[in-house]
Structure formats: structure tokens, C-alpha cells
Design a protein around this nucleic acid. Structure first.
Lengths: 350, 350
DNA sequence: CTGTTAGCGCATTCAA
DNA sequence: TTGAATGCGCTAACAG
């Protein structure tokens, strides 16, 4: 049997109330008895049982972290950010990773409860109105990251504008035929792909370029699928000269495809990603950076803040993105010929 | 106020015992009343308060995961493995990441308590005898991963042998001057660096090669430090022709250094890493693979098993490693000249 | 089959 | 300044 507060009280020859007071500094205690209690605590190696404390206080001292797509590279960065600040707080972290819609529903139904967590940090998931209602009803301090809801504090990124900027970079380089490699546009977790597609379309519209449906591919998120879709696009009779990928992972897959087809990047094909994961740096991938680690840091910080001052209205915070130009984007060959006056090397794709 | 079991009981017109029975299927309930309870539960959107349940049952339904060096690439893979199996269990995950010795001590002192966690999964940390004693006393089911203790179930890797194999690969290629880029040999978290150094020494001994102290560098674990130490080694008057790195991250840093010095890898320098993180594949790094994801999977599975059958004696499980030969190791130039009969290209390092 | 009751370990009143 | 009593929400044993 683990030692309880009663054991300590008996050992120190005091009541449990006194022990509790000493442990929590909740009321003044005579220095002598205080020391007796402290030595008893030390001798018995006593640590209060959190369940008892939680039940009694109605607080869990636990933060629930909900993260989908944990298998991908990007979300881990956010978690790293979270853990970096949580280390110096005294909250426990209850981690819920989510890979399927069923899982999401179950978690969203059971986890956001008073008595279960004191606060909720939800990454990259749109909530149903039902979800939001429950969270509001139970008054669970909550912060959304990479998605937004007017009723909840949110930290997000303007996906539409960021994607538009990315595609505009391609267009300004001279590309007229830009493909988009996307997650499913009707991804049940959120409108991320759709928003980026919107930005893609807007960039085309502004440039007076047509949006060609055959240049859009959708599939589940993975590097392998990025490669597949890249292959499809690059085997088109009139293939795109540039590809905007929904994510760096997809973009890396496209790079794989290009390599297989003996296409030189960026000479024969420009590729731009999204996220700026660690691998992107290594692959010299041009990409739209969103500050993943930072989003985790700010997410918890905001959450901690919301927990402190419950009364305040939801904070809406927009995180910046940055176009990081590296080695995978360049003018298309035709343009290069005109401007630089150099003959394009023979195209070797089959 | 959140709804409690009493609310449900009142609403359904039954006692709380009946509600509890229905929820937990803990005793037969008349189908009619059962339905009444179920509808009441649904109408009130009731979910039992875990603190109450925990306190009453003396079980937390929580697994504590202790991970050091979470900022590095390798440990995340283990966590991924953990989460992949935990998804289908009904345990909560309480995550503790550890970056400093102080943190480690605090966590190891407060977390391994009955009433706090039902089980403990500890990655990559040596435990003091005090730690082990507490864990044993409190009878917390525990599994160690990447480290071992006779009193606790452990899943580990033979670092000495693996490192020896790695270095032997270099030596068999013809390298006589092999550097070792290491974490601190007296790393308080474990003997990982020391063991790999041992393997390094054994390989030398078996080959009749001297271990040159100037070829050993120690520093904190990071890619940047890998680069620094790489630079140091490569600027030596009689520089090594091959480098064995404690980790892939270090190895990547060495690759950075080589690039800076205009050294061609593997022509001018062979590099071998350890871990086989995702980036290693991308960098075409030859490395000693340990199955990180798998270690997480097996870790929880074993832990779940230990929790089920408390009585059994500790399981000791050794995970295999594999030498993965990619593009960063080759015979040294001098050897190549003799065996292949080809002139070495001019060395361009400064 | 089901309602009532006694703890689980703790913080926090209320008395003293 | 401190000890005893109450209740947090729940499960399980007990009684009906």
C-alpha cells in the first residue's frame, strides 16, 4: 500500500489537516510542527496521490493535447514546442494522437470534460458545432492551433494567402503550367487542402492564367502518394513545369518522382512545398514556412493564459508564414532560353 | 457543474449503483432499466469523471512515458511507435519529456507512484539504485527501453557489438585512421556513448590498430556540434579517413563539415552514423540501424503484458541492429589506388 | 435484480 | 495554531 497523508500525520503526530497545510502552504503552521511534518514526509518518501487531490480540488492539473497526423513530420514539431514550455510548468500532459475520423470523434466526445483536463490544446482539426458547444458548456479552456473558431481562442495561419504567395512565386518565375498536389479537398479534419487550393486558384486568376483541372491531384497524405501523384502529373502529355505541393512531405515525394523520370530540378521542374520541416532544409526545398515549433509554444502559452483569466474573450492570433526560397524553384526552360539566352538541355523524361 | 452519476441516476429514476453497473457492465441489469439508464446517459451526455473512478478503483488507467532528448530526431520515432499501439488500448498517455538531469531526478522521484500511473515506460535512461528501489517497492509495472536493469523488464540493444560492427565495416574497407565523434562519455543519462566507444576500441584491438586519443571528440548531442567536432578532426595534421559518429545527427553534422572543407564523401572521407533516422535515408548515410519505432511498439506491448501478469519475472529482450550501407562509406583513397589501380583525384581540403 | 452505503486520498471547511 | 469532520465522483460490497 502506498503511503497516504494519514501515514504522514500519524508519524508526525499531527492531524491530516496540518499535513495538508504544510504540503500546500495553504495556511500558517507553527515552525516546529512544520518541521516534524516535513521530516515525516521525507522519511516516508510521501508524494500526494493526484487522484485524491484532483477529486478534492476539482482540478486535474492536466492539459490535454490533441494531435492528428502524428505519423507525419510536421506535427511533431508542434509537440516539441509544447513540451519545451510545459517543462517549466507544473501541468501534466495527456497526449492524444489521432489518425482516423472515428478516433477523432471518440476523443472529442470523451476528453473535453471538466474533471478530465483543465485545458485543451487542439491542433489541426476543425471542430463540429457540437464539439464547440460541449467545450463551451463545460467551460474548458481551449486553444485551437492551425484552425479557428470564433468562440474559442485560436492561433492560425492564413492558408489561402500563403498558398497564393507560393504559387505567385512560381508564376513570377515565368511558370504558366503549375500543378497542385493536394490532400483530399474534402478532408474531414479541416479545410487545409481546400484553402491552399483556393490560394492556388486566386494566384492563377490574378495572373490571368487558367486553372486546369488535370493539374490537380488529391490523395492521402504521405511521401509515397506525393511521388505517385507527381508521376501522374509529370506523365501528362502537356506536363506542368512547376508543382505546388500541399506539404513538404508531398513535395519530397514529387522530388522522388522527378528523380525517377530523370528530370532535373529545378531546371526541368520547379517544386515548392509547405511547412518547412527539417527535411525540407536538407533537400534544399523551396517552401512556404509555417512556424511549427513556435505554434506549439504559443499554443500552450495562450492556453495557460486562458486558464488563468477565464473571463477574457477568445484571442484570435494569426501566425505569419514565409516564403523560403531554396534550390527547387527556377524559371522554366522556355523562359530561361529567352532571358538567359542559353539553350535548354534535352529533356530526358519518358 | 458537470453532470455526475447522481444526475443520471435521478433522471433515470434509479440508484447510482445501477448506473455504475450499466456503465461498466459490472453486474447483470434488467434490460428495461438498462435502457432507461442508457437514454439518461445519452440525454445528459454523461461521461464518468476519471478522478473519481481512479480514486475508487485504485487504478489510474494511465501510462507514464518518460523520454529524454525529445528535441532530437530519434526519440520521436520511439514515441510514434508507442502511440501507434496505444490508440487501440484504453490507456491514457501521460508524457514526460526530459532534457536536464534536474528534470530527470524530479520526474523519477514523483512520477513512479501507484495512484499516479499504472505503468511506466522509460526510454534511454539509466536508473539509480534508488530509483529502481522505489519502483520495485511501489510495484509499478515498468519497462526500460535502450537500457537495462536486472530487476526490471528491459528491451535493449547491444551497443558495444553494434558499434564494433560499424567500425569493423570501416576497417574492412581499408581504413586505418578512424575517428569517433561522441556524446560525453560520462553522460549522466546512460552509458550509450561509452558503450559505443568500447565497441570502437574493440574493433581496433581486434584489427591490431592503435586507438588514437586525438581521434576521439566528445560534446553535447546536436548536429551543430557534430559539425564542430568533424571540423576539428578533419583539420588535424594527420586527419582520419573515416569517422564513426555516435548518432546520425552527429554524422549529419560531420557531413556538413566535410562539405565546408570541400571534402568529397565517401571519396575523401567515410562517415557512418547510428540510429537510422529518416534523414539518414535521405542523406544516403551509411548507418547502424536500431529499430526505433519498433522499440516503442515492443516497449508498450511488453508493458501492457507486465501489467496483466504482474507475477512474472522481468523479461529481458534484446533488439537487433543492422548495418545499413549506403553512400557515405567507401575504401580510403590510398587503398583504392592499390586495389582498383586508379589514381586518386587531388585532395582539395584546406 | 437493485438501492444504499462505505470508503478511495485529499483539501478544506468548522470548531476548538 | 490545529484536529476532526465533510465531500469531491466513483466502484464495490452489502442488504434487501
Amino acid at each position: 500500500m502506498p503511503t497516504t497523508i494519514h501515514d504522514v500525520a500519524k508519524r508526525a503526530g499531527v492531524g491530516i489537516g496540518t499535513v495538508s497545510s504544510v504540503i500546500n502552504n495553504s495556511r500558517p503552521v507553527n515552525e516546529a510542527t512544520r518541521q516534524k511534518v516535513l521530516t515525516a514526509v521525507a522519511e516516508l518518501d510521501f508524494v500526494p496521490n493526484p487522484s485524491g487531490r484532483r477529486l478534492s480540488m476539482g482540478k486535474t492539473h492536466t492539459l490535454g493535447i490533441l494531435i492528428p497526423f502524428f505519423t507525419g513530420s510536421s506535427q511533431v514539431e508542434r509537440l516539441r514546442g509544447v513540451m519545451s514550455v510545459i517543462a517549466s510548468s507544473d501541468y501534466d500532459i495527456s497526449l492524444f494522437t489521432i489518425e482516423t475520423v472515428a478516433q477523432r470523434n471518440k476523443v472529442l466526445q470523451t476528453v473535453p470534460r471538466r474533471g478530465r483536463v483543465d485545458g485543451l490544446l487542439i491542433f489541426s482539426m476543425n471542430l463540429s458545432e457540437d464539439d464547440v458547444r460541449r467545450i463551451s458548456q463545460e467551460k474548458i479552456p481551449t486553444v485551437l492551433v492551425e484552425t479557428a473558431h470564433p468562440a474559442l481562442s485560436s492561433i492560425w495561419v492564413n492558408d489561402v494567402a500563403a498558398a497564393q504567395t507560393a504559387v505567385e512565386h512560381l508564376i513570377s518565375l515565368g511558370h504558366q503550367k503549375v500543378g497542385y498536389i493536394s490532400d483530399y479537398l474534402d478532408d474531414p479534419f479541416g479545410a487545409f487542402s481546400r484553402n491552399r487550393y483556393l490560394g492556388y486558384c486566386q494566384a492563377h486568376e490574378l495572373a490571368g492564367l487558367p486553372v486546369r483541372p488535370e493539374y490537380l491531384r488529391q490523395n492521402e497524405h504521405s511521401r509515397a502518394n506525393g511521388r505517385c501523384m507527381g508521376l501522374e502529373l509529370l506523365n501528362l502529355p502537356d506536363r506542368p513545369t512547376a508543382i505546388f505541393a500541399y506539404s513538404d512531405e508531398f513535395a519530397l515525394g514529387v522530388l522522388d518522382a522527378a528523380r525517377e523520370l530523370n528530370l532535373n530540378v529545378p531546371r526541368d521542374l520547379s517544386v515548392i512545398g509547405y511547412d518547412d520541416i527539417e527535411l525540407a532544409h536538407f533537400a534544399q526545398l523551396t517552401t512556404m514556412r509555417q512556424h511549427l515549433f513556435q505554434s506549439g509554444v504559443q499554443g500552450v502559452e495562450l492556453l495557460l493564459d486562458v486558464i488563468e483569466n477565464k473571463d477574457t474573450s477568445p484571442t484570435q492570433l494569426q501566425l505569419p508564414t514565409e516564403l523560403v526560397i531554396r534550390q527547387t524553384t527556377a524559371p522554366p526552360q522556355e523562359i530561361e532560353k529567352h532571358t538567359v539566352g542559353r539553350l535548354p538541355s534535352s529533356v530526358t523524361y519518358k
